[in-house]
Structures are given as C-alpha cells and as structure tokens.
Design a protein around this nucleic acid. Structure first.
Lengths: 148, 148
DNA sequence: TGCTTTTAGTTAGATATCGATCTATATGGT
DNA sequence: ACCATATAGATCGATATCTAACTAAAAGCA
C-alpha cells in the first residue's frame, strides 16, 4: 500500500489477497461438504497415479503439518472418499488409498471448478500468466529451500 | 505439476504454496498470542494513519468477511490492542481504534518480522520481485473486480 | 408516513491450520 | 542387545476463515 514497505512484503501481501480471492471463489462452487484441501488430496492421487500413500508423505507434499492431514483424511474417510489402512511394512505408518467414490468426486469437482476457472482465465491475459508462472516457481522453490 | 492443467490453475497453486510458506514463517516469529491477521489490522491503522474505522470497512480492506473481522477484533480488544465503541453517527455501526498498546505491539511485530523478512529478501532477487509486483497487482485487481 | 430493501454486527457451526504434546514403532550407535 | 534418538500418527487447544441465519438500524421508495 505505502511506499515504505519492503518490496518482498508487498509481493507477499498481494499473493495473500489473491490466494484468499481464488480459494474463496473455488470453495464456493465445490459440492456440498467438499473443500479445497480435500479436493487437493483427491487430485494428487489421480494426477500422480498413486495407489497408496502415507499421511506423512501427503502432508509433506502439500507443505502442511501432520495433524492437519490427520484431520482432513479423517473427514475424507468418513465421507467415503479414501480408505486408510495400517502399513504392513511399518508398524507406525498408515496407507491412504482413493476409493471409487473419491475418484468420482474428483471428476465432479473438476466439473464444478470449470466455471470459475473459465471466468478467471477470461479476465487474466495469458501473457500475464505465462510471465508469472516461472517467476512464482522460482520464488516458491527458493522459499521452500529456506524452510530447512 | 503436470502439463495438462490450465495455466491459471498452476499459477494459483504456486501462489497458494508461497502464501502458506510465508505466513507460516512469519507467524512463527510473532510475539506469543499474536497472529498475522491481528498484525495486519494493527499495521493498517498505523500505515494509513487512521483514527477510527468501522469493522465493515476493515473487513472489506482485507477481503475477509464481517464475521471473521468480528472475531479477530474481539480477540484484539480482549488483548488490549484496540478499543471498540458504538458509532455515534450510525446506530448499527461500531468504531475501532488503536490503543497505545496496539501501537507498541505493531512496532514489536515489525522487529520480530525483520529477521525472516531479511532472509526472504536475501534469497529473492530484487529484479524478480520488481517484475512480480505489477503483475500480481494486475491479477489481484482483475480478480477483485470479478468478485461482484 | 410506512413498507421494503440494504447494511452493520453478531452468533452458530463447520473446516483448515498451527504448535505442543503424547504414544508407538523404527533406527542408530555403543 | 540396549538405550537414545528420530519418525508416524493422534489428540488438544487455539486462531482464522467461511456460509447461513439472526437482530437492529439506515436508506429508498411509494
């Protein structure tokens, strides 16, 4: 807003607002009971063609803490979107798998997201997005490396 | 991650991750009990040199809903960071003001944030940030307009 | 004036998120 | 083999966020 802020601060501020606007818009159109967090998990399994994955790996893939993933997975299991079994190879671990219902829900979510997505793409010039993507990837990777 | 995603989707995804990384890093260093949301309110008052502001205007400034602002302000009032009075000019409204304690807390937060901020700026080339800022502002404004 | 609509704020209920802490199991070093 | 450390999950308590629904007051309009 003002000029006396560090550049990075203003960048992070814009990013925060954009994140809020997009997640709110997307969440609003998802099927009743579905959330972005849950959709993200469904999408992860399908896109990477995973059979089974541990909660810890899922948490780390999305940069969230294990307790967060525990609670999200519990809701997803309750909703019949995933199954959670003990890991036979590791007494501490669990293995999460997608159910058929989870797969269908992911497809349904994609259908629901298409509208807002198209709206966004309609107002955002492709040139801007193409410029943004590599810059954001660079920032994300550098911040990610900073994390440890 | 994969190539078959719409460009905008990937951009929003990167933005989401960056947001998560930065807010987590900043939140971690704030004084006990302080949060990003509360700091943002403190900062807003000081930067814009506001005497008093209604909760509704604050909510709209940060793109959050009024219920969210209600709860954040309630915690801030309890912590002695702001005062909340009835608006004499509008029977429905309230007026929020910073207390001396709130002002001090904002300064203290800035001190705490300086470290992580410097770390971030150290790894993020200024050139990249300078390129990013106008692009992000453009995207934010367009998405914001889409909201209504 | 009086009714309708809009706006401000709150309350309730839900999810996501975190840090701190606990239990159980695995791993590593002596 | 044994003990110390590290890792996987779960539990707890807190905050931020949303939508839906409610109350009260202002604004608009006939």
């Amino acid at each position: 807003m003002t000029d006396d802020d560090p550049l990075a601060f203003e960048v992070f501020n814009e990013i925060g607002i954009i994140n809020q606007l997009t997640t709110a818009a997307f969440a609003a159109v998802l099927p009743k009971g579905m959330t972005i967090a849950q959709f993200t998990v469904l999408n992860h399994f399908v896109r990477l063609e995973l059979e089974a994955q541990s909660p810890a790996k899922l948490a780390s893939a999305f940069q969230i803490t294990r307790p967060t993933m525990t609670s999200t997975l519990a809701r997803m299991e309750k909703a019949g979107l995933v199954t959670i079994k003990a890991d036979p190879a590791d007494g501490r671990g669990k293995l999460v798998s997608l159910t058929a219902g989870g797969r269908e829900m992911r497809t349904e979510c994609l259908r629901c997201l298409a509208g807002p997505m198209a709206e966004a793409q309609a107002v955002l010039p492709e040139a801007v997005l193409k410029q943004l993507l590599p810059l954001l990837r660079d920032v994300r990777e550098k911040l990610d490396r900073l994390r440890d």
